[in-house]
Structure formats: structure tokens, C-alpha cells
Computed example of a mutant assay.
Amino acid sequence: MAQADSTDRTADAGGTDTARGGRSGGFLGLRDWGRDARGSNTWRRGLVIAVLAVVTAVLLAFHAEVPNSVGNLGSLLETFLPWVGLAVPVLLVAALLRRSATALTALLLPVALWANLFGGQLTDKSGGKGDWTVVSHNVAAENTDVPGTIRGLVASGAQIVALEELAGGHLRAYETGLSDAYPYHAVEGTVGLWSKYPISGVSPVDLRMGWTRAFRAQVATPQGPVAVYVAHLPSVRLKAEGGFTVDQRDVSAQALGNAIQAERVSRVLLLGDLNGTMNDRSLAPVTSQMRSAQGAAGDGFGFSWPAAFPMARIDQIMSKGGLQPVDSRTLPRDGSDHLAVAATYRYGS
């Protein structure tokens, strides 16, 4: 009887076996957030998790301060910045398992910052009727289904189509396959423009690469002239010895930004694979003067690369000068390693 009474008193006093190092029942021990076997209460546990939550918040809030001087880490972080938010659910599970009120409180910081930065992209911002649709697609030199890509472009209903990475062996197929739907086209180097409207004033844009991967053209839309830039900026590489190598891309971005800034036609479109996202500071010569269709009228993040599991929006449609985006989306996957991106515009004042 004495043994039984002692056990009963222990159970009555704590409701659990915590006096002997045990935990209470319930999901993740939520019925007992008091002291653990070591005597730490819920506000003193999980300090490492709380610190990691604060680090996540700092990266979101001050990503622009991460230097590019070491392996271009700043640009690498900004390219995949939305994915930093994945740390939150991981840390949340850890905080619940640790039964830490401190960690849960700290997690409010990255949640609030991520919502402030990217919450708007989770809503559908499209609306209204547009005048015409444009498509940009890196069709890939190693495209495994060129006829399928051509069918998808025609089925998009776009009036203006820009293509990047046109390999010599595939160029004739695109010219032939798109000719019925798009009577006007221009090709410079490995980039091209197809249009239902007349094209004029075609001239290469020097990206400081030694060969042509960008040009400017004027398209005579029914609502008025639009200067259209088609560009494929140099690729970036992630190397163990050199980090995120973007030097050539950044030089080309500056050259493209200078060309757009000098444009005399008031309404300007930029279509292309910029090998960088709108968050990447290195694309500021371009992004600082243009508006992203995805950011203004998209539904979701609109990731375009890699096609098998899109993780970043490096294919861009941007505008300035009274062109109002009313819709932005990606097209179904085809034989390229990129998804085509599309946007519908209203010709504004």
C-alpha cells in the first residue's frame, strides 16, 4: 500500500511522470510545456532554434547586404530568395518537438518578413482585358521536341513571340513552323522575334560578349509603336572554386540597361532569358527602370527554370512607358529546359 500511495501522490502532483524525467501525453507533449527533466522551462528551451529563426529573418531582411565579394554569394542568395522561407516549417517542427515558446516566438520574425516580401505573389493579380499577348521562350539548343515547342507557341495565341538560344540546326524549323501564324520575323545571332504585326528598325545590342545575343526592333501594334528588346544574357555558373560566377552576365546587364535607357520610343518591352531574377541586385541596370509583368499581374511565383522542377524566374517579360500588364503566366512544359513565359498587355497612356 505504501508503494501505491507514493505513486498516486506523484501522479496527482504533476499529472505526469515528469518527476522521473518522463513527458506528458498529447500531440508533441502540448499538454505539458512546463519544465523538462533538466529543469529548463519552455522559455529557456530551444535557444538554438530561436537563433536559427533570427538568422533566417536577417537573411530575408538584409539580403542586399550579403556581399558579392566572396563567390557572389549575394546574387546567389537573391536568385533563390523565396526558398529561404522553407526554413520556417523545418524550424517550426523543431520548436514544437522541443516545446519551446522562445523558438515559436522567434519564428514570427521570418514569417512576417517572408509574407511582406512575397505574400503578394500568392494572390492572383490578373484582371481586365488586354490588347495583345507576348511570349518569351528559351527554346534550348538541345531541345528534344522542336515540333512540339512550335505547336505550343502557336497555341499560346500570342501576337509577339521572342525566342532565345536558337541553334543553327533548329532555326529553319522555327522559321518554317511559325511562318503561317507570324508573317513577320527577325533573327540576330541566337535570338529572334516573330510577330503578327510589322517589324522594323532591327539593330543588334552589344552585350560586350563578342557575338550577338540581343537586339532591338520596333513593332507596329494596332495601338501604336512599341520598342521590343530581345535578350539572352550570359549564363551563370556555380563552381566550387569560384562560387557563383556572374561577372560576364553583370557586364552584359549593364550594357542592356544602357541601351534601354537610351531608347527614344516611349513604350518599351524587354523579352528574354536574363539568367537572373528580379531580386538579383546585379540586374539593377535593367530592373530599376522596368516593370515585371509577373510581379504586377501574375498568379504565384511564375518560376520558369529548370522546367522539370522550376525554382527560379530567370525568363523575364518587362515593360515601361504606359504598357499595363493584365496577365502573366508560364506555358506548359515542352522539349526545352525552360518554361515559356507569357504576358498580356493593355496599351495605356
Rank of each mutant, 00 (worst) to 15 (best):
D280F: 01
L113E: 15
L339S: 09
I160R: 11
R249E: 01
V236W: 06
G243L: 09
R98W: 04
P225E: 01
R329E: 13
P306H: 11
G15W: 06
G348T: 02
A343W: 09
F309P: 06
G276R: 00
N72G: 09
G243C: 11
V93Q: 00
S24C: 12
D334A: 11
P325E: 01
L339A: 05
A312V: 13
R38A: 13
P89N: 02
D334K: 03
G295H: 05
G21F: 03
T105A: 14
D17V: 05
P222I: 00
W114I: 06
V88D: 12
G119I: 13
K125G: 11
A217L: 03
Y347L: 06
Q324I: 04
N68F: 01
S319R: 04
R44Y: 08
V139N: 01
P332A: 11
N138W: 07
V251P: 12
V205I: 14
T42K: 05
Q324Y: 13
A167L: 13
R20Y: 08
R151Y: 05
D280I: 01
W43Y: 11
E175C: 02
R20S: 15
T245V: 14
L193I: 04
A106G: 07
F215Y: 05
D299Q: 10
A214E: 07
P306C: 07
L207H: 08
G302D: 08
A115F: 09
S292N: 03
Q294I: 04
Y174I: 00
V205P: 08
S266Q: 13
S349T: 13
P110I: 07
G300M: 08
G322E: 11
A214H: 12
H137K: 10
G29I: 03
L76I: 00
V191H: 13
G242V: 14
D315F: 03
R45K: 10
W305R: 12
L271N: 04
